[in-house]
């Protein structure tokens, strides 16, 4: 118990709020946040697949939800989170090769992640809707 108290009294290292925001820091947080959102979002994919497997009645109910304004908004947001997490992941894969750590490069890559993710998302939706 004495140990636990001594530990709690020790000063903690400063956390997020004391740092000046940078592009790389923001995109690191975005990467983690989109990853967590996608984690729980997989439940939506499971629900759709399960409804499809269950039969026309269940499938029509789920299709109604995904086709509603809220459903479409959720799917659009899901696409953006997926694209943002993918682009952020590609950034990490580039870093894994030992490249892209220069100040200019890492700032440019971080900005590109945020700029490209909505562009790719909108492009995918336009292509998908035009092809239908």
């Amino acid at each position: 118990m004495a140990d636990a108290k001594a530990q709690a009294a020790r000063p903690l290292s400063p956390h997020l709020q004391v740092y000046r925001w940078t592009w790389t820091m923001a995109m690191s947080i975005f990467h983690r946040a989109t990853g967590c959102a996608l984690y729980f979002g997989t439940a939506l994919v499971a629900i759709w697949l399960l409804a499809l497997a269950s039969g026309p009645a269940a499938y029509d109910r789920v299709s109604w939800f995904f086709g509603s304004p809220i459903g479409l908004l959720v799917m659009f947001g899901y696409t953006w989170a997926l694209m943002h997490h993918m682009l952020g992941g590609i950034r990490h894969l580039i870093w894994d090769t030992g490249r892209g750590f220069e100040f200019e490069t890492r700032m440019r890559m971080a900005k590109m992640t945020l700029v490209l993710s909505p562009i790719v998302t909108v492009a995918l939706w336009v292509i998908a809707l035009v092809m239908r």
Binding site: P56, F66, G67, M86, G89, M131
Partner: peptide
């Protein structure tokens, strides 16, 4: 798995874009 997800993820988007909303 990240690299596999990039490749399979685009397949997933194409599959969902063509199947979602269609009659059962």
């Amino acid at each position: 798995t990240a690299i596999a997800n990039i490749l399979l993820g685009f397949c997933f988007i194409i599959i969902m874009a063509s199947a979602a909303g269609r009659p059962w």
